[in-house]
Amino acid sequence: MQTICPKKWLPKFRSFLREKESLIIRKPTLGDNRGKLKYVDNSNKICFQPYTAALLCKDFAGSYYGFNFASFQSVEEKRLPENVTIDAIGYIKKCYEIEDTSTRTGNVGKRMNLRIVDLEGRQLNVTLWDQYASQLNSYLTNNKNETHVVIILQFGVIKFYKDKAYHNNAYTVSRLFINSDIEEIKAFKKRYLGDVELQNTSSAQHGVGSSILSTLHDEFLIDNDFNFVADIADIKQIN
């Protein structure tokens, strides 16, 4: 559930509000989550008050990261609310070079586009911005011999452009896991590699290793199917 700590009460709770910590929260208030973008699919939110008490929880037994993976099919079919963040896990099929970007105010940023695949073979476009783009670019630069890269983008937002879905990081709220030593990635990779071994074809290995990285030149001139001019001339207009 999304939780809010007003700025005026932050000094009291600052020492408790650390990423990956588990808390017991006593006497908060519960209200409607009316934000335009909801970081979790819950219509309520918790709010800290001056009388709220927070304690570190030493024996939390729930999900450590709280992943709630969305299926790529549900994204394609637009069955997910657009104002709620989602979690996605996939194997990197293709990754394009990092690019410099600029905003209307002149601020300089980074962008990296990639394509990930789920265990059913469905693909999802992903766009990483700024620190998340730099994080993935740094990993790929320092691990050039890595042949299978699985990522999780947690708390990402889905945007549609020309009827194609793109999974983007949500400001600085998102988390990006790259081949991390966590159960979700290890289980995904084990199932994926098992499927590749069963297929045992060269096409199953396409996109791994050095061929993960690509450029717009490759996308246009290599990865596209082209027609001959003569074929185009034979196209007939149907009224």
Rank of each mutant, 00 (worst) to 15 (best):
181 D>L: 02
115 R>M: 15
135 Q>W: 01
210 S>L: 14
8 K>W: 05
20 K>G: 02
174 S>H: 09
63 S>Y: 07
8 K>E: 14
239 N>K: 13
174 S>F: 09
139 Y>E: 02
92 I>N: 02
205 Q>H: 12
14 R>M: 02
69 F>V: 02
25 I>D: 05
153 L>N: 02
175 R>F: 12
196 V>K: 02
12 K>L: 14
72 F>W: 03
222 I>C: 10
38 K>Y: 05
43 S>P: 01
31 G>E: 10
156 G>C: 06
191 R>P: 00
129 W>Q: 00
16 F>C: 07
35 G>V: 00
43 S>I: 11
231 D>A: 14
192 Y>R: 07
18 R>G: 05
195 D>I: 07
81 P>W: 15
102 S>P: 01
168 N>C: 11
234 D>T: 14
23 L>I: 14
94 K>V: 09
222 I>K: 13
33 N>L: 12
157 V>M: 08
132 Y>H: 01
68 N>F: 02
209 G>N: 05
183 E>R: 10
82 E>V: 11
3 T>G: 13
180 S>W: 00
24 I>R: 08
101 T>S: 15
42 N>D: 15
177 F>Q: 04
97 E>P: 01
184 E>Q: 12
206 H>T: 08
174 S>W: 04
136 L>W: 06
98 I>C: 01
107 N>H: 11
143 N>K: 08
218 D>P: 00
94 K>W: 03
81 P>C: 12
64 Y>N: 02
7 K>V: 11
90 G>Y: 10
61 A>H: 15
142 N>E: 14
169 N>C: 08
236 K>N: 09
45 K>H: 06
84 V>Y: 04
201 T>C: 08
192 Y>T: 03
97 E>N: 10
117 V>H: 01
119 L>K: 03
144 K>S: 15
155 F>A: 06
119 L>P: 02
148 H>G: 01
136 L>H: 04
5 C>G: 04
33 N>R: 10
111 R>H: 04
127 T>F: 01
70 A>D: 01
110 K>E: 11
48 F>I: 15
196 V>M: 08
153 L>V: 05
218 D>H: 15
131 Q>N: 06
83 N>I: 09
